[in-house]
Design a protein around this nucleic acid. Structure first.
Lengths: 254, 254
DNA sequence: CGTTTCTTTGATCTACTTCAAGGGGAGTGG
DNA sequence: CCACTCCCCTTGAAGTAGATCAAAGAAACG
């Protein structure tokens, strides 16, 4: 299994970009049944009597339609979330109205950590497509983490991983050229898709060019131009939001 | 007391940029005695029988000389740290050698969280001046967090806060102009200095222009030019690394 | 006190932005 | 099922913020 490090030019290792679990193995994710959280939270390491406790936590599944917010900056923080299906973006709104996309969450990934520091969400989370979301009450989770070392470890790693992921994005924004940023982003999404049991090479990227630009610190025009350039060089094949990676090594070489 | 939000144009609220404590109050920090950690970890909320437990954790104080590493990317992760005196920078090294400064840690602030996800440090932490560092074994800390809700909460908030801090920096790198970045950075350091009981208006910034540039995603020349410009406009008074903020509102207005 | 490293400032260059306009796809309503 | 509308995407042309190159001056350090 490729490590994310191998894919991303940015040298921060992500153990398990996922969530309250150690890496949901390819196969596990692929046959994900009712709720991603079951798999995400269960895997290796929990003893059989711990599993029901965890399951009891997962209160509800919430549907969020394309464009709607799962939560908004300023909302009270009560839950962590895991994307069951669909995808979301998280963003910060500057007081002058400028928006910065801080992350993209794919199926199987976690979000909500931006609320831990202040009991108040610092980001807004907006669905990029109709999505369903598993809800995990934070208070209950904390209790469980005091009972069970494994769960404590899992939560800590989740937090640590998101921390490292952000640091990695800081490197992207601070040090890479526009072309490198786009290549890096495509490889990152490709890798994450693959980790959850989907195709390495082809995926729907529901973000608009503008969202990508915001996430990468460049303009939508630049994103578009670079994607066209990549296509001309036979690195990718992009039809709007459907992206097919043709030459993964070529992208990595950038 | 000014909230960091008020200072920083970037709209992520930092509860307590500090550490395992709720905000070390101005006064507390000012009369900091033997070890910053004592104050950082003790304050409000711990019952008297919890305090000794925490103190028992603080194993050692380590000295790091200017330019030396407290830890390096790839090192095994065992401890969290709190800066007792001095300051450090954390950075990621890209495989092609490019470095990105990910943070500046002042006296009273915590570091080491980059190791949690993988049991391996993702950053390197380098002293910007001769510094002394309190060491907090992570394993022991985890145990304590399972015993004591207060400590658990404190650790979670610490992690959450660093997460939000990074997100805030993503906004800086992704959306602000060079001038805004520098102004924002000066205000941030000023605010953090003040929170730890030092001057709001005047401080030694031990980073080089190059470090600042790396942290802010611009070149050292640009940093230098902008500082000169600020000086001409009577916003600051900079003599090398000694920075005096003359017109804090003017800086905020940028 | 000399050497090195950091900082400032100027001149030029360029990667990316901004402005602008045309084209295409997806959803909606007829 | 088609046509309309809206939004998004693409591509071009021109402008600019910031990078790069260069060189001199100022601290810091042994």
């Amino acid at each position: 299994m490729l490590s994310p490090t191998a894919v991303s030019p940015v040298a921060v290792r992500h153990a398990n970009p996922a969530s309250l679990a150690s890496a949901p193995v390819r196969q596990t994710a692929a046959r994900c049944s009712a709720c991603a959280m079951r798999h995400l939270c269960m895997p290796q390491g929990l003893t059989s009597d711990e599993i029901p406790k965890l399951e009891a936590l997962i209160c509800s599944v919430r549907k969020v339609r394309r464009g709607e917010a799962l939560y908004r900056a300023g909302d009270h923080f009560d839950n962590l979330y895991a994307v069951r299906s669909g995808s979301l973006k998280t963003l910060i709104v500057h007081r002058d109205g400028r928006e910065q996309i801080t992350g993209l969450q794919l199926a199987g990934e976690a979000l909500g950590l931006d609320g831990i520091a202040n009991d108040t969400h610092a980001f807004s989370a907006i669905a990029l497509e109709d999505s369903s979301i598993c809800t995990l009450p934070y208070a209950a989770l904390k209790n469980l983490c005091r009972e069970t070392v494994t769960m404590q470890d899992r939560l800590h790693r989740l937090m640590g991983d998101q921390f490292n992921r952000e640091a990695s994005q800081m490197m992207v924004l601070g040090s890479l050229s526009a072309e490198e940023r786009v290549a890096n982003f495509l490889l990152d999404v490709s890798e994450r898709n693959w980790q959850r049991g989907y195709s390495h090479a082809e995926f729907h990227l529901r973000m608009s060019r503008e969202d990508m630009g915001s996430y990468l610190g460049i303009t939508l025009e630049t994103v578009s131009r670079i994607l066209s350039r990549f296509q001309k060089r036979n690195l990718i094949d992009a039809q709007g939001k459907l992206i097919r990676i043709v030459d993964i090594e070529g992208l990595r070489a950038l």
